[in-house]
Design a protein around this nucleic acid. Structure first.
Length: 307
RNA sequence: CGCGGGAUAGAGCAGUUGGCAGCUCGCCAGGCCCAUAACCUGGAGGUCGCCGGUUCGAGUCCGGCUCCCGCAA
């Protein structure tokens, strides 16, 4: 039986945690996750997904900082007795002193086919870039971000209508299926870690809501991909008359060379935004500030001021 | 008590200095047409979120409450 400590926070980590917890080859000595955070309009303190999914009876730590005394004391005592730490979507960089604790290193599940899309938003990046396939990578962590040697990968096709949320859920599940076998094989010495092809690496950054602003100087094709990629996080929007308009669904329409990027117009009863080089983004579903989501037709019915 | 928008017909919205509750779409019936998501005629559908107050009279003004949503975190 292999003893491990699990570091994870968001939904993406839940299938991995569950598959390890229900696998008799592993003993989870403890779960480390982020502290409860204020969430929503009234800032209700909410526990992270991993804490909710934690098996009863398992030790759960929620250190604000990894060097918090009680946590550091525990991890420095029990860490060296572990075969490995598993980290999935934890949300903090682990310092070197922590990486050195377990006998056989830190195993990570990452939502892309490394070395493509190192960084914090690999799923959105893959869709936004128009990739036709992505996947999950089980790898060993080293000091650099998503840079360590690879233990195993699994590929997942990207459908043309995949949203970030849908692809996220499939990759999370895929990671959960892949992880236990790979981890056991690695700890038993049946897998040799393989160095990444560092020269092929691409990177993506942490996304904020501001990254969801649609720039009409981009092509409609790219903006359509962004709308899919950033659904449901961080969402896409345009600014109109000083107000934010969330764009929930949009598609590229037939081009119109007579328009300038940023022009608003109506075609076939749907609101449209002119983009770069005469391309046209048709807005099928949107949400104004303070309003419920509605179709493009419904939005235009009450507003004759779209243009 | 973080900041802000909102609740009016099935949907989206308008409603002026308080004075008969409206628009676009949908729905029902009929008409026109080779035909249509087109067009014409007619029709149904409302406790104006809830409670109280002011007034001859409140969707509208005042007070309280409930619910929905955008931002921020």
């Amino acid at each position: 039986m292999h003893k491990i400590i699990f570091f994870g926070t968001s939904n993406f980590a839940v299938p991995s945690l569950q598959s390890l917890a229900s696998d008799e080859r592993f003993e989870i000595a403890g779960i480390v996750t982020q502290p409860d955070r204020p969430v929503g309009r009234h800032a209700v303190l909410t526990p992270p997904a991993v804490k909710i999914a934690a098996p009863k009876g398992t030790l759960v730590f929620q250190p604000e900082k990894l060097k918090d005394e009680s946590f550091k004391a525990w991890v420095t005592e029990f860490g060296p007795t572990c075969d490995a730490f598993v980290i999935v979507s934890y949300g903090k960089i682990l310092p070197q002193w922590l990486l050195d604790l377990p006998k056989k290193g830190i195993v990570n599940v990452h939502g892309s086919l490394l070395p493509r899309w190192r960084g914090a938003s690999p799923i959105q990046a893959a869709i936004a870039a128009g990739d036709t396939a992505t996947g999950v990578t089980v790898m060993l962590i080293d000091a650099e971000m998503d840079h360590g040697p690879i233990l195993a990968q699994a590929e997942e096709p990207i459908m043309s209508d995949d949203t970030g949320g849908e692809l996220h859920d499939r990759l999370a599940k895929l990671g959960g299926e892949l992880l236990p076998g790979v981890l056991a094989d690695y700890l038993d010495g049946r897998i040799e870690p393989k160095e990444q092809k560092h020269e092929d690496a691409t990177y993506c950054k942490i996304l904020t809501r501001d990254d969801g602003k649609l720039d009409p100087n981009d092509t409609a094709e790219n903006l359509e991909q962004l709308v899919f990629a950033y659904d449901p996080w961080p969402g896409t929007w345009i600014e109109k008359n000083g107000k934010r308009l969330k764009i929930l669904e949009a598609m590229e329409g037939d081009p119109d060379k007579t328009r300038n990027p940023g022009d608003f117009f109506v075609r076939n009863g749907l609101p449209c935004l002119a983009c770069a080089a005469g391309t046209v983004l048709v807005i099928k579903r949107l949400q104004p500030e303070g309003k419920k989501p509605m179709s493009g037709q419904e939005y235009l019915r009450g507003k004759n001021s779209w243009i």
